[in-house]
Simulated scan of single mutants.
Amino acid sequence: MKNNLITLILSIPLILISIGSFAQRGDQLGTPEERATRQTARMKEALKLSPEQETSVADINLKYAKQMQSVMETGGRNLKTARAAKSIMKSKDKELKEVLDKDQFNQYLTIKEEMMSKLKERRRQRS
Rank of each mutant, 00 (worst) to 15 (best):
Q39V: 07
E45Q: 15
L29P: 01
E34S: 07
N78V: 06
S117V: 11
D93H: 14
L8P: 03
S50E: 05
I15V: 14
I88T: 10
I60G: 00
A85Q: 13
E121I: 10
E114T: 10
F105R: 07
K2L: 09
D93K: 15
L96P: 01
L96R: 04
T37Q: 14
K2W: 01
I17V: 15
Y64W: 06
A82K: 11
M116H: 12
E98P: 04
L16C: 12
A84K: 14
S87E: 14
L29F: 08
A46E: 00
S56M: 09
E52V: 03
S127M: 09
Q24A: 15
K63T: 08
K92Q: 15
Q28A: 12
Q53N: 08
G30L: 00
S11P: 00
K80W: 06
K44R: 12
I88A: 07
N78S: 12
L10R: 02
L8R: 12
D27F: 04
G75S: 09
L62G: 00
D103E: 12
G76F: 11
L100N: 04
G75Q: 13
L29K: 11
P32T: 00
K90A: 15
M68G: 02
N4H: 10
E95N: 08
S50I: 03
S91L: 07
G30F: 04
L14N: 07
L79D: 05
F22S: 01
A46R: 05
D93N: 14
R122F: 08
R126E: 07
E54S: 12
S117L: 11
D93P: 04
I19P: 01
K92H: 13
L62F: 00
G76Q: 07
I88W: 00
S11H: 01
R77V: 13
E95P: 10
N106Y: 01
K92S: 08
I6K: 10
I60H: 03
L5I: 15
S70P: 00
S11R: 01
T74H: 09
R122C: 03
T31G: 04
R124K: 15
F22D: 03
K63C: 05
P32A: 00
A85L: 15
E34H: 00
M116Y: 13
Q53W: 05
N61G: 02
S56I: 08
L16I: 08
N78Q: 09
I60R: 01
S21F: 10
I19G: 09
K94M: 14
E113G: 02
K97E: 15
R25N: 13
M43D: 00
F105P: 02
A58V: 03
V99M: 07
E52A: 02
L96A: 12
D59A: 14
Q53F: 09
R38H: 09
F105I: 06
Q28H: 13
S18D: 03
L5T: 05
V57K: 00
M1L: 10
A65V: 07
A85R: 07
S117Y: 04
M89P: 03
L14E: 01
V57Y: 05
A65P: 03
T55Y: 02
Q67N: 11
R38G: 10
K66T: 04
E114M: 11
Q125Y: 09
E52T: 02
T37E: 14
E98M: 02
L8S: 10
N106W: 02
D103R: 07
E121W: 08
D59K: 07
E95T: 09
E114C: 06
